[in-house]
């Protein structure tokens, strides 16, 4: 990667005694779709708000397309489009009025505004709802409108804070296909998500936990870098087995995937799984043969967090 389009340099931010960001650095390339992954409280929103000039960091800086957030916040606002986590448009204005209002604030010339609005409405498939008040849209449509409003001034850098949280699966898929098309037009996108399968749609991701970036890379590579083995187990009592396993191991090592239970194991995994199978049978679970499956991003992430916690405890 040549010169990064957006560079986050050693950002630190605390709210009182709570550390939201502990020296976070990131590089995002031009035209890249970059994902921020992590549980609630990992610092994703804080990072995005600082990057959008809404929040001042305690130290560190962000530079987007050569413009520094701390030196020229107004300049940054012309480059970026920001979509906050919570729907925050005017519910009592119509779809068209919301778009027009934000276009006007960015001084989009009239002719261009009309063209751009029509394009965005078609893009988001919101044309039939131009005259509908935003408060009366469905959750998925609201998110598409918020995206359209964030795009109305043709930003080069789009910052999306959990745009699909709380949105139904069909709308989520549609939203991501819109993002993909956007990326093809050359927009650089930074998007946070709690959904691992969405992370795998990004070019690169950063895994965040407790205000730190644990790892940055291509989702598939991170998953392959997983040091242990993931076993998939079928059982007539999936939930019961998961609860029992969480008691035996750590909760992070066990998760339910569809009708099966996935268990992440480290070290001599062959022996460990055999031992677990015997114990489970004694405990009264009738389980089918456990088989190793390729690790997913989430497995790697969970393992990494568990590893960190263990080291932290040791220290």
């Amino acid at each position: 990667m040549s010169i990064p389009f957006a560079r986050v340099k050693e950002l630190e931010k605390s709210y009182g005694k709570t550390v939201a960001l502990a020296s976070v650095s990131l590089d995002v390339g031009k035209g890249e779709m970059f994902g921020l992954i992590g549980p609630d409280g990992a610092g994703k929103t804080t990072l995005m708000r600082i990057l959008s000039s809404l929040l001042d960091p305690d130290s560190g800086d962000c530079v987007v397309a050569g413009v520094s957030v701390s030196e020229d916040p107004a300049g940054i606002r012309r480059i970026i489009g920001y979509m906050p986590q919570r729907f925050s448009l005017y519910q009592d204005l119509t779809v068209g009025e919301n778009l027009r209002f934000f276009a006007d604030l960015f001084r989009v010339p009239r002719r261009e505004r009309i063209k751009r609005t029509a394009m965005l409405l078609e893009f988001a498939r919101l044309e039939p709802f131009v005259k509908r008040q935003a408060g009366r849209l469905s959750g998925g449509m609201k998110q598409k409108l918020a995206l359209a409003c964030a795009l109305v001034h043709t930003p080069e850098f789009l910052i999306l804070d959990e745009p699909t949280t709380g949105v139904d699966p069909v709308s989520r898929r549609e939203f991501w296909s819109i993002l993909k098309k956007l990326k093809e037009t050359g927009v650089t996108i930074l998007v946070s998500t709690p959904y691992m399968e969405e992370a795998e749609l990004c070019d690169r991701v950063a895994l965040m936990h407790k205000g730190r970036v644990l790892m940055t890379g291509v989702a598939k590579d991170i998953a392959q870098g997983f040091a242990g083995t993931v076993y998939s187990v079928a059982c007539d009592d999936t939930v019961g087995l998961a609860v029992w396993l969480k008691g035996r191991l750590t909760p992070e090592q066990v998760r339910i995937v569809g009708t099966r239970v996935h268990v992440s194991l480290f070290g001599d995994t062959g022996r460990a799984i055999a031992g677990l199978e015997r114990e489970a049978a004694t405990a009264g679970f009738s389980i089918a043969m456990a088989e190793p499956v390729p690790a997913a991003l989430e497995d790697a992430f969970v393992a990494m967090i568990a590893e960190r916690e263990r080291r932290h405890d040791a220290a």
């Binding site: 809404l54 606002r77 919570r86 925050s88 448009l89 519910q91 604030l105």
Partner: peptide
């Protein structure tokens, strides 16, 4: 309350 102030803040207002 509804968060639109944030949205206004990221405009050049």
């Amino acid at each position: 309350e509804i968060g639109t102030l944030d949205q206004l803040m990221v405009t050049p207002l």
